[in-house]
Write a protein that binds this DNA or RNA. Structure first.
Lengths: 210, 210
DNA sequence: CTTTGCGCTAACAAAATTGTTAGTCTAATC
DNA sequence: GATTAGACTAACAATTTTGTTAGCGCAAAG
């Protein structure tokens, strides 16, 4: 044994998790290595001992988060054998739920990752491959349905941008959106539940024949 | 005359414009007063001479930008005597254009303003008043049209969130969105033009009877 | 022609933040 | 029992960044 287990995990992990919180909340420039160390319950020398520099620690967190972007796409792919409408509904809902349980991920990506050309390059090398296979499958299926007169022939790329925009923005701008709508909802969770339904409806309506 | 007019404006204004660019691009924590001074073409002591502290200079920029948020709403209100569909089309297009010519405003608001509780409070005291008058007018009009069977009875609040989400997100996440869609478009401007049409269609489709 | 006020500069001071180093303690290894 | 290695600490060093101050030059006012 030897080690005190009053702290839940090993030092390196605790620093990583504290860094994750600090970086996601304040960004690279706003984060303080001393705060990270304090939150992790270690001296700030330990942070340098394990990760050498603030930059290296940050890169570690960034690569974790960029990988999550792959997950977000894969997790949103629905059951292959459901009818198109159900499958899209499921995808939108899963995507919404993913964002809902990673609420500061989008802001982090938009601010910290996109601000650095090298990170944009990493993403441009990884994301389009996954997205384009997703898109071509989706587009093929839409075209099949459309050929049978079962739905509108819509552009899958635009549909994807719609889904992501509708699902992500309300979380990024949560205080404004919820604040501006004032007292129309009991609480934020109620607003989110309504919003989720609404987004599904908005997307599906684009496919419906009228 | 006396003054050299090699520099276009007076010192205070040049510092303000340089600060605006620096803060919008890098955020408060990432901005450097020395960079701002250099960009303005003055010694960094001048920055403190005119604005005392980095904080005060930042607040000045923040209030400018928060005021623009009022404009964004007012500018989007269309002609009162157009039919509903045309008016909404016009509003969505104006909003899109506004964001398009202030592309880093949303990111700045979301990151820098929302990160500070005092700014959120300022906005919560000012925005809801404007928004709720806009919303109640819009809702009344929608209800009238719906009563005559001319459109769906939709929730104006949700419609507003839809519009803002669809219009703003693609600009905030521009490198990803445009990057992930790869080579499907000639250039970014073409993508934007298509996107603008698409957003109008998406919104109007929510109102259409089917 | 002296004074006053203002824009301005250069040099300096203070604070905050990151990064280093010498050395301690402990546990395993020879 | 001496040796080694790795986790760790306290103190310090270096750098970056913000903020200050004493004073110069010039134009307008008295």
């Amino acid at each position: 044994m030897g080690k005190e287990y009053s702290q839940s995990q090993d030092t390196e992990t605790r620093i990583l998790r504290a860094a994750e919180r600090e970086f996601l909340e304040k960004g690279f420039a706003g984060a303080r290595t001393a705060s990270i160390a304090e939150a992790a319950g270690v001296t700030h020398a330990m942070l340098h001992y394990y990760f050498r520099t603030k930059d290296k620690l940050f890169e570690r967190i960034v690569s974790e988060k960029i990988n999550m972007l792959g997950d977000i796409i894969l997790s949103a792919i629905g059951d292959d054998n459901l009818p198109l409408e159900e499958r899209i509904r499921q995808s939108v809902e899963r995507h919404f739920d993913f964002i809902s349980s990673n609420r500061d991920l989008p802001r982090f990506i938009v601010n910290e990752v996109l601000a650095r050309p090298e990170h944009v390059d990493i993403m441009k090398r990884n994301i389009p491959a996954i997205v384009s296979s997703l898109l071509s499958n989706l587009q093929r299926e839409i075209d099949e349905y459309a050929a049978r007169g079962l739905c509108q022939r819509v552009d899958a790329r635009m549909l994807l941008v719609d889904i992501v925009s509708l699902n992500v923005f309300p979380f990024m701008a949560a205080p404004i959106v919820y604040g501006a709508l004032g007292d129309a909802y009991k609480d934020y969770d109620e607003f989110l539940a309504i919003r989720k339904k609404e987004n599904v409806e908005t997307i599906l309506r684009k496919l419906k024949i009228h």
